[in-house]
Design a protein around this nucleic acid. Structure first.
Length: 305
DNA sequence: ACAATAATAT
DNA sequence: AATATTATTG
């Protein structure tokens, strides 16, 4: 039982373990790739920003595959990385930087489904869903993209559920694809074909608002986290359950690799049914062959479900 | 001008 | 395969 104490204290002092920004700065330069250095515009010349006072809301992550070189001007000017042309210390950084891919964890998806369920298919549109989820850092496009896929999933389900006689063999690919979706119970009426489902008697008129102000803060934190630790792969514990069993890959809290996982606890007003959530950098789901290092963001549920 | 959806790209 | 991004439409 003493373990319980330890487990509860694993986060008690997480702050103390955090190195100062100044401490990390030099390290970052060493660890991060030149690309990242450019993208992040490491403020070598700029005063290090203390936690809580981020220099800028910009998120960035340079993408590796040099395929995205939008500049129509035929001048990559790639040779210049120290300079000032990009953004010298402390000033508004490039706003054209990309954020890392969002990873839809089962928890995050749960929130998504929850929101959709409460809104009703009718009103379940990206913007609204996003707001209801109140997950900072989550963008409308993130939701839209996921929603698109989710709809396909639902269609698929309907298709093989109503059709008589099993005409549509579910390809193996599909099964694998739906792992995420399978992890969350799909509200009955979702599958109801042919008609809409009104909004649940639940939160009918929820003053959804005032939730998007944390975005900048967390966004910055995400950025820092990305700079901070260089995680390759911690190994995974979730057993590859052959089927719909998402073995919570979230036990990483037990990992004692010198890992620096940080959790950002953001206090936010319990506007709607669910407590707000924050994005946190976590371990990656595991990859099989061929997937190099990919920086991603995952969501860690601050509240339980 | 904005938001949603569809289609396509990475 | 999973997301992002772009294009199209309402």
């Amino acid at each position: 039982m003493r373990e319980e104490e330890e487990s509860s204290s694993w986060f008690a002092h997480w702050e103390e373990q955090l190195p100062s920004p100044e401490e990390l700065m030099p390290l970052s330069q060493t660890l991060i790739t030149p690309d990242l250095a450019i993208a992040f515009d490491i403020p070598v010349a700029a005063a290090a920003a203390p936690p809580g006072a981020n220099q800028n809301p910009g998120l960035s992550l340079h993408h590796p595959p040099a395929s995205s070189r939008p500049p129509p001007h035929s001048d990559p000017e790639s040779s210049d990385l120290n300079s000032a042309s990009a953004a010298a210390g402390g000033d508004e950084p490039a706003r054209t930087l990309k954020r890392p891919r969002l990873v839809w964890t089962p928890q995050l998806h749960k929130r998504f489904v929850d929101a959709v369920a409460h809104l009703g298919i009718k009103n379940a549109v990206p913007k609204t869903i996003m707001q209801l989820m109140s997950v900072d850092g989550l963008t409308r496009e993130n939701v839209a993209s996921h929603l698109q896929k989710y709809r396909l999933y639902l269609k698929r389900m309907q298709g093989l559920s109503g059709s008589g006689g099993g005409g549509g063999p579910i390809s193996a690919a599909d099964a694998a694809t739906d792992q995420l979706f399978a992890s969350t119970p799909v509200p009955h009426h979702f599958l109801s074909r042919g008609s809409v489902a009104g909004p649940e008697p639940f939160l009918s008129c929820m003053p959804v608002a005032a939730l998007q102000h944390h975005q900048q803060i967390t966004a910055a934190m995400q950025q820092q986290q990305q700079q901070y630790y260089h995680r390759r792969h911690l190994g995974h514990y979730g057993s590859p359950t052959g089927r719909g069993g998402f073995d919570h890959a979230f036990q990483n809290r037990a990992v004692s690799h010198s890992g620096m996982h940080q959790m950002v606890g953001l206090a936010a007003p319990p506007a709607m049914g669910f407590p707000p959530t924050t994005l946190v950098d976590d371990l990656e789901p595991a990859k099989r062959g061929g997937n190099g290092e990919r920086k991603v963001l995952t969501l860690f549920p601050t509240g339980e479900e």
